[in-house]
Simulated scan of single mutants.
Amino acid sequence: MSKPMTKAQLVAAIAEEMDADKKTAGAALDAITSLITREVASGGAVTLPGVGKFYCRERPERMVRNPATGEQIKKEADKVVKITVAKALKDSVND
Rank of each mutant, 00 (worst) to 15 (best):
R57I: 11
V80L: 08
K22C: 05
E16N: 05
Y55V: 00
V51I: 14
K7N: 00
L10V: 01
A28L: 13
A12I: 02
A45Q: 07
S92K: 09
L35H: 14
G50P: 15
K87V: 08
E58R: 00
V11F: 00
A86D: 07
L35Y: 15
A8D: 10
G44F: 09
K7G: 01
K82L: 12
P60E: 10
T6S: 15
I36S: 03
I32Y: 08
A13S: 14
R59D: 07
A68K: 13
L89Y: 03
V80Y: 09
K75G: 14
L10G: 00
A8L: 11
K79I: 03
A12R: 00
A86V: 02
V64T: 11
N94L: 15
G70Y: 08
T33G: 13
A68V: 12
K82M: 13
Q9A: 05
T24A: 15
A45K: 04
A27T: 00
D78E: 05
K74I: 09
A12K: 02
D19P: 01
A27K: 02
M1A: 09
A13E: 15
P60L: 06
V51S: 07
A8G: 07
A12W: 03
G70V: 07
I73D: 10
K74P: 05
K23P: 04
R38C: 14
G52K: 01
A31S: 12
N66V: 06
D95E: 13
